[in-house]
Nucleic acid binder design. Sequence first.
DNA 1: GTCGGAATCT
DNA 2: AGATTCCGAC
Length: 651
Amino acid sequence: MKTPGDSGFAFPEWAYKPESSPGSRQIQLWHFILELLRKEEYHDVIAWQGDYGEFVIKDPDEVARLWGARKCKPQMNYDKLSRALRYYYNKRILHKTKGKRFTYKFNFNKLVLVNYPFIDMGSGRGVPQSAPPVPSGGTHFRFPPSTPSEVLSPNEELRSPGMFSSVARRMARGSVSDCSDGTSTNSELEEAVGAEERGVGPERAFRGLLHPRLPHESLYRVYGGAPNPAGLPRPAPRVHPEPLSPFPVSPLPGPGSLLAPTLSPALSMTPTSHLPYTPSPSLSSPMLGSHFSFNPEDMKRYLQAHTQSVYNYHLSPRAFLHYPNIVIPQPHRPAPEKMGSTSVTGPAAAHHLHGPPLPLSHSLSQQHGGGEEGPQGQQHPLPFKFKLQPPPLGRKQREGEKLSAASGGGSSSSQSSFTGSGLITNSASVMAPPKIKVEPISDIESEEEVEVTDISEEDELNHHHDEDDEGDVFTPTAHHHQLNSHHHANGTGLSARLHAPPHSNTDDDPEDDEDVFKTPATPPLGGGVTLPFPLIGLKSEPGQGQGSAPISPGGTRCIPLKLRFKRRWSEDQKMEADGERDEAEDKKVRAEEHEEVEAMKEEAGRGGEGVENGGGGVSLGVVLPPAPTQRRASSELQRATAQLSLENTGC
DNA sequence: GTCGGAATCT
DNA sequence: AGATTCCGAC
């Protein structure tokens, strides 16, 4: 591993490599997929569907063909392409939506800004105005931790705006090229910048060929900007010129948008109605606001929340880190500065909007102003030392580490170290372990969330077993979804972890994928919550907390609170650990577990009742309407509280 | 359909 | 590193 010292944390190399960036010359499959997704022309072939980041390949052969064309691999077929896609599972870039054919889902949680220039922090360089739709907005994933070694230095050029812009253009443009000319990829790039999605290019032709089916289109269009059928008010009116862009975007007016890009895609769509489930907007994309329901006010809230969440989740911070220019939220920092710095962006933002990023700094600063930021307040990345989450790699190691970690702790270099988290943590600190999210139930519309959650849950579950996602580095969620199966509650050794959880961040990680987005639901804006972090929207699990509380699996009933907390925490931790481990360690193993889990899910889905525990309302990957109740528990804290109360009464 | 190992190519 | 190919297993 690289020394953290240097970089503090790093994203995986791939995140920085220009090649990895969307639009780059050496296009990667996921970039390509995103490209297609963002173009209307291809909606008949591949389109966003369902949840955030979830897309369905409507015409596998065509997608394969296009991909083959792009890569000049005429022999390409869906079988091969899907293999490539499967490789993304381990990278956590994608995961499969179970039960749905040809349906995959991006782990946007992991998105990283890295490649996105929009964000630009600043310096003046601008964002590419051209940056079209930020397609990528969605694109960036967080880094999967593939390898620690991957750490990169922030220096890379990747961020250079200039580059980006060009890239963006390219991206926008051609998704497919023929190899015929031989130049293949390059040629594409060179081609035209102008064409863009508007349908000018060949794509159009394609489209024509395809024939519009379209129910989808309408959807997409929606985000495109304009009219939302749904009537969702979009916070950010700005839609750009591009009709197509799937990424919704920019809800936020703020200039400095950092993250914006991320979620968009799926989100946007979601709202549309055609989805079976409702994704909760709030959660889903904090940044985008994709949700329907936003009003200006909401937006504000949203922003704040987002910000916080981001912060909390660490998402952004990381991102920020990379960018030297970026400032992390400091308490005092006036927004304006940021803007200034981003000035470039500003304008740009206006243009593209796709995802205008949120002004994180801005918002963050405000919010945070509170001050927690102690440690990291500074802009430098160093302070933060986040690390990527433990990637899969650790699997083998992990076992060992795990143990050690548990025992000692933490510091182990890799995982645990993230100082930065402190912020977050402290807030929570109340007792607990770092990162708990508490959510004011009242504020949020739980309903929405709930729904959303369904989806997410999937992920959650997965986290543990499936492919899932990974644990992100930060994710505050405390979920615990633990399935019974996993669970072991032992309180024992875990305690150590509490203190210094190895990935502490990870706690939530599991969710992170979507979670992040989701969670941020709503911050209590007006009130100003005291907590440093936002209360996230997770809904706390009412169900869990309460319901389960009484009889928690552990039978904790009359146990002292402290103990309980501890236990809970421990459990969670453990679960997480397991989850991670699973992933990391052995996929195979996972598989086994996986099955179990799935089974559980199913049950849960049907029965609903039994599940309080982690499963909570788990929904199957698909839709699970019913789980009105709680989804993942949001915060332990709440739970604890709930328990407490119960306890008191009961005992 | 999906998954993932293995070899191989770029 | 990121596919691409091939392929057996489920």
